[in-house]
Amino acid sequence: MAVMNFLKPKNQLEEGGRTSAPIQRDAGEPEKNCPNCHKDIALSRLWANDLVCPCGYHFRMKARQRIQMIADKGRFRELFSGMKADNPLNFPGYRDKIETVRAASGEREAVLCGTAMIGKQKCCLFVMESYFMMGSMGSAVGEKITLLFEYAIQYRLPVIGFTVSGGARMQEGLLSLMQMAKTSAAVKRHSDAGLLYIAVLTDPTTGGVTASFAMEADIILAEPGATVGFAGTRVIEQTTKKSLPKGFQQSEFVLEHGFIDSIIPRVSQKKYLTEILKMHDGRAI
């Protein structure tokens, strides 16, 4: 069963030798408890492992850290970084909320976009930020992603996108909903231009993002154990009054049902993406 891959993995990080040298530990070093193996893991060790527990559990990762992990060193050039949401509906509490989130996360919005080299292959890259209102999609997120696909069409570049999202940002009401249509239309133009789009779904990818650009890629990958779905589990339980099957909405479950091409652990992602990019090199001209 695919689900077991994530529960009982062969530790590819250890195999790869990246953490095979024992890390010096201070007695008082901060630790994080793993929700899968329930062991306390030293933060320094987690960081050295791209936030993957030795048991294979993938912790959430900040967008900029992910870019460091995926892009060639110093080869990410951010685009549209000045864009951020206004409060178009004057939704109560939204302005304060977003200012708090901006200060805490150090980001202006819930997605980072740019051009990057990955394994010396040029591409457009977007990475959503779970630490910014759980990657919710409002007008600014929709606009940045649309602009990125339009940029990729203009320069005939593939797009690689890491998704993480609780769905549409309800504080922007209908304008958020419309971002699903807007981004989808841009993905379609990019696709019709013969260009490659790879989505990597990370935990959690749900709601309006699943129902738009996350599920529209030529190749859809996911991280192990990531929640991938449309409706929230609580809503489903309330609606159906049934208990959910084991592993429901985990990437392994979604793979089994045919909606994901492959589950790629973090440690292999860069190599895997590089290989796919190389295999499409020159095909889109």
């Binding site: 989808s184 129902a211 650009f213 996350a214 599920m215 529209e216 409706a231 909405q249 049902h257 909606f259």
Partner: peptide, 14 residues
């Protein structure tokens, strides 16, 4: 969910 509600909507939008 098993039959891809999100994917079905996404495909229509596209």
């Amino acid at each position: 969910e098993e039959r891809g509600q999100g994917q079905a909507i996404a495909e229509n939008l596209m």
